[in-house]
Amino acid sequence: MTRQVKKIICIVCPRGCEITVELEDGKIKSIKGYSCPLGKQYAEKEVVNPERILMSIVECVGGDLPVVSVKTAKPIPLSRMIEASKALADIAVKAPVEIGDKIFENLLGLGVDVIATRPCHEQRG
C-alpha cells in the first residue's frame, strides 16, 4: 500500500486555496482545504490528470490585425500544452472572424476545438 499526500493550489478562482489531497494506491482518500465545490472538483482532476485552457494566437489573413486570439473550448492536458500550441503554428484563417468562431477542430485528437476570442475584421482599403 502506498500513501501519498499532494498539495495543490486551486486555480479556479483568485482566492487560490491550498488543497491537500491524500492518496492511497493512487486512489483519493481525502480532500481538505477547499472552500467551495468547484475547488473539490478541481483537486480531484488535478491529482490524476492536470488540465488547462490553452490560449494562443493564429494568423489571420486579410484581417485588420495580423493575428486572431484563440483558446481551447475546454481544458486540455497540461502535458500537451506546447504540442497543442505548435499545432496552431501551421494554420491560418481568413478574415472575417467573430468571437466564438471555430478555428480548428479536434486539436491533437483530443476532441477539443479551438475557438476565436477576438474578432478579426476584413482589412479595408
Partner: peptide, 8 residues
C-alpha cells in the same frame, strides 16, 4: 520573428 515561428 513571428510568434509562431519558434514553434515551427
Amino acid at each position: 520573428t513571428e510568434v509562431k515561428a519558434l514553434l515551427r
